[in-house]
Design a binder for these strands. Sequence first.
DNA 1: ACGGATCAGACA
DNA 2: TTGTCTGAT
Length: 516
Amino acid sequence: MPVARPEPQEPRVIAHVDMDCFYAQVEQRRNPALRGQPTAVVQYNDWKGGGLIAVSYEARAFGVKRSMRGDEAKRVCPGINLVQVPVARGKADLSLYRSAGSEVVTILASKGKCERASIDEVYLDLTDAAKDMLLQAPPNSPDEIFMEAAKSNILGLPSNASEKEKNVRTWLCRVDAEYEDKLLACGAIIVAQLRGRVLEETQFTCSAGIAHNKMLAKLVSGMHKPAQQTVVPSSSVQDFLASLPVKKMKQLGGKLGSSLQDDLGVETIGDLLSFTEDKLQEQYGVNTGTWLWKIARGISGEEVEDRLLPKSHGCGKTFPGPKALKNSTYVKGWLDQLCEELSERIQSDLNQNKRIAQTLTLHARASKENERDSVKKFPSKSCPLRYGIGKIQDDAMKLFESGLHEFLESQSTGWSITSLSVTASKIFDIPSGTSSILRYIKGPSSAASLDLPASSSVPEDPSLDNHLNVTPIHGEQCEPSTSEKVDAKRYSANEGKKISKKLPEVKASHPRFLIL
DNA sequence: ACGGATCAGACA
DNA sequence: TTGTCTGAT
C-alpha cells in the first residue's frame, strides 16, 4: 500500500530519466547492422518465437508491441530483427543489460542525488544544481545545451506548432517567472545536458520528466518519447491531473486503482478531489487514504534516495506447462544453475562494490495434480546467506525441501514446480578504510582473528570460495548444511529474535562478520 | 496452462 | 524479523 511522506517546504527539482526501449538500444549498439532497423529483443524462441521484452521505435511503427510473441511480431512486421537475450546455464542472462544500465547511471549521478529505480530508470534530485545555476548562469543565451533544452515539452504551454520552440525558449528564460518555474527551467537545461552526455558517451537515447516531485516527473517522462523531455510547471498540474485516468498513476495500476473505479466511481485523478480525506481514509485506511488525497492535489513528498546499486539480487526461471519440474532431481539441477548465477553476481558485488548480502531466499510456485483447484501457495523460505557456490546450492535445496514439506502437509500425491527463484538480500556496505570498525572472527575450526586483504581485492575465482566465507555473525547456526537432516524450525523467526537480544549491537548500520 | 525475469516496499 | 502481497518495468 502506498504511504504519504512529509512534504518538503522548499520547492525541489526532480527528474525521472527513462531509457528508450533499452534492451533494443543495447542490441543495436552491439550490432550496428541493426541501427535504424525494426528490432525487438526476445527471450527464448522455442515457443511461438519467444516473448518480446523490448521493441525499437522503428518496429513500433509497424504495430509491434511488447507482450507480443516473436511469431506475431514477424506477421505484422516481416522485416523485423529479433535478437535473443543471451542464455547462460539454461536461463536468460540479463548481465549485458545490467552493465549497460550501470554505464548510464554513472553519468546521470554526476549532478546530484541519483536513485536507481530499475535497470533502465533513475530519479534525480537536481535542486542544488538548479539553484546554483540560477545564481551563476541563469538561462538566457542560445548556447548549445540551451538549444537542446529548448526542445523540451512544457506541459500546459500553448503550442502553436510552428512557434513551439520559440515559446519554449521564452518560457525557459522568462525574467518575470515564479521562482519555482525558474528552478524548473534550470532543471530542464541540466537534464538536457545530462541526456546529451549519455548520448555522447553511450550512444543511448533517453527521455525524461522534470517536475517538483517524483510522482509528476515519472508521469510525464514517458509522455514524449523517444529522446525527448517534458517539464511540469506547477501551474499546469491541476488541469493535467484532472483528466488523468486513475490507472495511469503509479501505484494505481492494479487492484487499488480498480477499487477506486468500481467502488468509488473514480475514473480520473480529478474525480478524487470530490472525496474528503476522512472518506478516503475510511475506505482505504489512514496511510493510503491520505496518500490518495494528496496525489489528487499533485502533492508527493517522497524523496530521491542516494542509491546507485540494487538492494537485492535475484535469479529465477519459470517452467510453464509441460516443462514443470516433477521431482526433486530436476529441482536440484535447476536450483544449482540458479545458485551458480546468484553466487557469481554477489561475488562481483563484493569485489566491485564491497557489499555483502546477508539473506538467501527461495521462492517457488507449485501446482498439485489431481486436486480440485489447489491454489495453495508454495511458501517462500530464507536463511542466512553463506558465500560460496556449493554452500548456496546446499542451503537453497534445504530451503526448498523445507518449503515442500510444508506445501505437502495437507496431503497430495503429485506436485510440480512451475517457477523457481533465489534471491540475495539485506546487502550491506563493508565500511572501508578504518578496518578497526570491522571485527572479523575466525570460525570454530581455528580461533585467530583475521583481516580482509588490505589490497581490497577479494578473490573472484569460485575455487577460492572455500577460503573466504563471510557470514553474518547472527547466523550463528548458519549451516543447514552441516547436519544430515535439517529441521524447518531452524529457519523460524524465533531463533533470530533470541540472538538479536543477545547481540543488540548487530542492529547497527553495518553487520559483523564471521569468516569460516 | 505463466508474457518472463527482476526489483521495491508495506503490512501483519 | 520472516513471509505474504502488491505493483512496476
